[in-house]
């Protein structure tokens, strides 16, 4: 039986149980970790136990909230900048042959540049403030948004275009009634990918040069051999990433009630 067959025969209760199962597995892993650290008597600067990490999470909570806020602002601003550039650009690429031929290959080609490597350049150019961080976040988030928007806008079928023409639709109507709504699922997929990359971008920027944000906390804790604090920051960071991802998913489900996400194993 193939995977597709399995999913179509899966009762709804199995899907609901998936989350608790994952949670139980996580708890089991944490217990193994805790026991291993205790039995092997590992020092905290090598590998702190989950209990130690939870303690430092609690001790540092005020500080972590402040630095999370800094990182969150960088991520959100960079994400918005990327979106505002990516969507009009993708539309131009989709409508103009000239743009497609002159700009699109450069965008795709530019992805071979590791953006981590240009972070120091941007910091040198823009200083230690918010601007270089937002720029790096935007650069990271930009690519999946452009690509997925282009793919989405192009996914409209020839018949659909014919249909709109036979109705006498203007180019604007054709775009907003036929093309754009059909591109939204792909755009949301791009935004989810972008959200993950945006968080990475913010952390990298903070690593390279910053005096606040979660990346800064990790750097400082590392240089003080406070692995427990590093882990605490990482926990917060992954929670941040998860929440952003989840919020985009929530907006997607609200905005596209007609869309069946593929992981539901629909048609």
């Amino acid at each position: 039986m193939s995977a597709a067959d399995m999913s179509s025969f899966k009762p709804a209760s199995a899907i609901r149980l998936r989350v608790p199962y994952a949670l139980l597995t996580l708890i089991a892993l944490l217990i193994v970790w805790q026991v291993a650290v205790m039995v092997a008597r590992l020092p905290d600067y090598l590998l702190p136990s989950p209990a130690t990490i939870i303690t430092s999470l609690y001790d540092l909570s005020g500080l972590l909230v402040y630095h999370t806020w800094i990182t969150l602002v960088e991520v959100v601003l960079g994400f918005i900048v990327a979106f505002l550039v990516a969507v009009p650009l993708a539309t131009l690429i989709c409508y103009s042959k000239l743009f497609e031929r002159s700009v699109y290959p450069l965008i795709v080609g530019s992805q071979t540049i590791p953006k981590v490597a240009i972070a120091p350049l941007l910091l040198a150019a823009f200083g230690y403030g918010l601007v270089p961080k937002v720029t790096i976040v935007a650069l990271m988030a930009f690519f999946p948004m452009v690509i997925n928007t282009v793919v989405g806008l192009r996914s409209v079928s020839q018949e659909m275009i014919y249909l709109s023409q036979s109705m006498g639709a203007s180019p604007m109507q054709q775009f907003f009634r036929f093309r754009m709504p059909g591109a939204l699922p792909s755009m949301f997929a791009g935004m989810k990918m972008a959200s993950v990359l945006a968080v990475i971008g913010a952390i990298v920027a903070e690593f390279v040069g910053s005096n606040n944000g979660l990346g800064y906390v990790i750097t400082v804790a590392g240089s003080n051999f406070r692995m427990d604090q590093q882990f605490a920051a990482i926990v917060v960071l992954s929670a941040l990433g998860t929440v952003i991802f989840w919020i985009i998913g929530l907006i997607e489900r609200r905005a596209l009630p007609w869309h069946k996400p593929t992981q539901d194993g629909g048609h």
């Binding site: 079928s157 014919y162 036979s166 006498g168 709504p181 596209l256």
Partner: peptide, 19 residues
């Protein structure tokens, strides 16, 4: 030019999934 006094049906239904 594309005629507007017309109704078209294709082999694929070409329904807008969001409506």
């Amino acid at each position: 030019a594309p005629s507007a006094d017309i109704g078209i049906v294709f082999q694929r239904d070409v329904l807008l999934e969001w409506r």
